[in-house]
């Protein structure tokens, strides 16, 4: 009796969770679906299969420039923020720092402040110091939001590692620097790769900060935003959006697999 009631509640929860997943995925699957629809409106009934929109997307004027701009922001941003995140995570896990909680709080701030307000605060600062808006200023904004992500990904990786391995290396006569390269770095490696991939994705997809901090050069999300005004360009935007989604999903799956490697059930690695 009690066994069957347990199973039925589990069944209900499972159905609910599946419906919830559909709710989460539906809007995202929708973009690729209609990017192949042979019609200018995103509406039923669908008219037929076409690759025209994808072809139009590839040839869109301005798209290549925006793609290049996004790369030239996201690559330095992921390298810089992962380096800073790694140093911060190492500092917080190896040393007993006075005020460690306050530091963690400081690093959490960019994640709990609306990006809009971060954006205008940075805009005012750049204006105040006479720094012209450019891809560089977008990059500064992105590093600010990526360092906390990187730090928290790496903290969870490094908290779970056995400090005695480093001590053994030092006892065996390694210099601290060699110890870092030969012990700490390989252990933290999956976390570092995950951090690089995730911060790259965040920067590549980020819209609001770029919206305020970019000058004349537009990144890919800014380019998409500018295209949304023209209904005729919608299908090509759907194709572009789908392409970005597919690449992002691939990157994130690799990153998550790296991050959670061998620690599926430990809760501290969830966030």
């Amino acid at each position: 009796m009690s066994k069957s009631s347990l199973n039925s509640s589990s069944g209900w929860l499972r159905s609910y969770t599946v419906i919830y997943l559909v709710f989460i995925y539906l809007p995202i699957l929708f973009l690729p679906l209609f990017s192949f629809n042979d019609g200018i409106y995103v509406a039923f009934p669908m008219s037929g299969f076409t690759l025209n929109w994808w072809a139009e997307m590839v040839n869109q004027p301005g798209m290549h420039k925006a793609l290049w701009n996004s790369f030239s922001v996201a690559v330095p941003v992921c390298l810089i923020s992962t380096t800073l995140g790694m140093m911060g995570a190492k500092a917080l896990t190896t040393y007993k720092l006075y005020g460690a909680r306050a530091l963690t709080g400081l690093f959490t701030l960019p994640l709990v402040t609306p990006f809009l307000i971060l954006g205008i605060a940075l805009l005012i600062s750049f204006d105040n110091y006479g720094i012209d808006l450019s891809l560089f200023t977008v990059g500064v904004g992105h590093v600010l939001i990526c360092v906390p992500f990187s730090l928290f990904v790496l903290l969870s990786r490094m908290e779970s590692f056995d400090r005695s391995l480093e001590e053994v290396a030092l006892d065996l006569g390694e210099t601290p620097w060699m110890m870092f390269w030969r012990v700490t770095f390989p252990i933290a490696m999956p976390g570092i790769v995950a951090s690089l991939l995730l911060t790259f994705t965040i920067s590549f997809d980020e819209f609001l900060l770029a919206f305020f901090l970019t000058g004349d050069a537009s990144t890919l999300p800014i380019f998409i935003w500018s295209q949304l005004r023209f209904p005729g360009k919608l299908p090509a935007v759907l194709a572009l959006g789908s392409a970005i989604l597919i690449v992002t999903v691939f990157i994130v799956i690799v990153a998550e697999l790296m991050r959670r490697k061998g620690s599926a059930n430990s809760t501290e690695n969830v966030i």
Binding site: A91, L97, L103, L144
Partner: peptide, 26 residues
């Protein structure tokens, strides 16, 4: 612990320059 602060200092500096000071200016 000084080494720890030195290691964390680039990230702390970033937070001061790109977060705290912009908010004061705001």
């Amino acid at each position: 612990a000084l080494k720890g602060y030195a290691l964390a200092s680039p990230a702390i500096l970033l937070m001061i320059v790109a977060l705290v000071s912009p908010f004061l200016l705001l």
